[in-house]
Amino acid sequence: MTTTRAPSRTLAPGRTLTLGASRVAYEVRSYFRQGDSVFFTFLFPVVILTIFSVAFSEGSFAVTPDGTEVNAAQYYLPGMLAAGILLSGLQNMSIDIAIERSDGTLKRLAGTPLPVISYFIGKIGQVFVTGTLQSALLLLVAATVFSVPLPTDPALWVTFAWVFVLGVTTCAILGIALSRLPRTGKSATAVIIPITLVLQFISGVYLAFTQLPDWLQTVASVFPLKWLAQGMRSVFLPQSFEALEQGGSWDHAGIAIVTGLWLVVGLVLTRLTFRWIRKDA
């Protein structure tokens, strides 16, 4: 090294984490400055919950076997929370990274000393922040506008917390892996949204899961969204609804196992396929 200024060029240890934190702030700010992502992923579940709750506001939407009335908002809230995790995680992440790959964002970052891990921390952190705000907004609207009774038992909130954290992490990682699927940023929405839309229809977000044919329930059980929705139902629906579930149980172990497996699949796919750029494309 012979330049006259010759400062030390060694990179500080621990910078992966501090840069990751700086990425989270940067990503969250950028997210809320893009109107389309705010609408299609952030506000979408709130909009759908509102529409369904208003459309089915006449009388009770369902009655538990012991006679408790459940209104439409309460009935749909768990599904919307699960859909929010899927949208904020998988859909937003895969479309966002596919666009960043094709518009030159990743190429620019690849030419800087930003660690890939810091970039991932930024993305996953952004999903956590926006996913949390989204859930909070859903709960707020459900509780204040549609009088949905929220659970008071701390154990139920613990269930909510682990289902949420596991779901967000898994969906974010799967989103990173799926970002390789669209060939261009322009096709990203067209490739990804059908996948998430179909998943939402077969996993008990818009349609009551227990009314789907058995074979479709089995298909849906392969994917994590069905399990996330089930976990949320176990928190927000009366205990007596458990009997209506497949196998007559909330099956928390099943939720953890299937979602956890998808997390591992996502991590492996991401490790194998993620590149800053398509070299020699």
Binding site: R9, R29, S30, Q34, D103, T105, K107, G111, P113
Partner: peptide, 21 residues
């Protein structure tokens, strides 16, 4: 590696980033 990239400055041909900062 990253140490090497820290010593480079790269101005690519035009990019079309979303520019939300």
């Amino acid at each position: 590696g990253l140490d090497w990239k820290a010593r480079l400055g790269i101005v690519l041909q035009g990019t079309g980033e979303s520019g939300s900062a």
